[in-house]
Design a protein around this nucleic acid. Sequence first.
DNA 1: GAATAATTGGGGAAAAAACCCTTTTTGAAT
DNA 2: ATTCAAAAAGGGTTTTTTCCCCAATTATTC
Lengths: 222, 222
Amino acid sequence: MQQTQAPVKVGLVDDHILIRDALANVIRSFDEFSVSIVADNGKEFIDKLNTGNMPEILILDMNMPEMDGHATTRWISQNHPEIKILVLTMYDAESLIHMIKGGVRGFLKKDVPPGELKHALQCILENGTYCSHTITGRLFNLMKTQGTKNSAWGAIILNDNEISFLKLVATEMTYKEIAQKMQISPRTIDNYRDALFLKLNVKSRVGLVMYAVKNGVVTINY
Amino acid sequence: MQQTQAPVKVGLVDDHILIRDALANVIRSFDEFSVSIVADNGKEFIDKLNTGNMPEILILDMNMPEMDGHATTRWISQNHPEIKILVLTMYDAESLIHMIKGGVRGFLKKDVPPGELKHALQCILENGTYCSHTITGRLFNLMKTQGTKNSAWGAIILNDNEISFLKLVATEMTYKEIAQKMQISPRTIDNYRDALFLKLNVKSRVGLVMYAVKNGVVTINY
DNA sequence: GAATAATTGGGGAAAAAACCCTTTTTGAAT
DNA sequence: ATTCAAAAAGGGTTTTTTCCCCAATTATTC
């Protein structure tokens, strides 16, 4: 059975020109897929979005300036939940679960070979999800090791307060100053911190900082 | 005057297949340059190196597994100092000076457009060095702001003690535990810390951790 | 509406981190 | 050998962090 339908439109959002163009070229070389939008960041993507170029699959970089991957994911799952999001990521850490909850359908490592890229796109179309072997492995490992520790099935889910707190933890502010900035009592900060110590299995502020860095809660601007 | 000589051989060391192939294709499109070696990491590069494919310019990624950019730089400037090293980097931070001291001739950001890549290669050949405008700016800024504060002309140079201390600072060990591990008195740890506070212009342990992360003193394993 | 759970806040204490200033040790230079 | 400077180590203090246990205030559920 030959593929005679119109190609599936794919969107690309990544601020690295080189990676983006390389991906675009690879995708354009597949008969079944075409590239309908290319953007530097989430904001630009949303601006360019219209009924003509609405992609069925969106390949999205997570760490971008302007409007980052998480914000973009949130916007898309609210406004266009039919778009299937495939995340371009170097992180195969716990934040995966956050992303899945946020509507992400799959993960690609940036050094994906063309063959697997095609496979990923097809999986997303057919099954609705895609996961590379390496990342599938991590996910299983996560479910296994985290076990029944917190929340539903052990995944580490941070709420908005904890995330904005974590961002501030990775600065030189004292907890008192963080409390002022967050407009809450220093005691509540204590509670946030202690809850995170438990959740993230760390014992000190440095542990929180390293978690935040490793999981992209704070972005490192080189 | 036409360019009729043999093309200048360029080596490529980067563990991201996509970026590496994209760069290779771009370089191959330039008449004056050819790609003579492509490798995943420093070790592979050294293994592949022979008199036939000896590159004049090496484009090198700094953060790789196996043998990373710094180790590779060191090996090259000892064994083949004639090879001009162009670093592919996202860091435009102070660690630049370390790299320059290590023999690096220039810096490229990963999202370099093809035109500038060509320009960079030509600059390296003609002047021996290359620096993108953005990074040149950072360097000037660095020299200006750091002024006459430390060392020769203000560059932040960390000695071995400070580097191994910084690595431990980014763990959940207390200073007392760090002192034990480093086999020195806790007071000396105080001295190290206070010296780094001054040098790096930070006020707390979190500041040290963030510096270590941003400058690759500690490596984040995703 | 009452019971229950989660979030927010408080007092106080022990440990760690940060900041003083001073002394000893070490290493390099003349 | 002596001098000089840097590195290492100490004593003591203040601030911050961490860790208790407990009370008030919201949400949630029955």
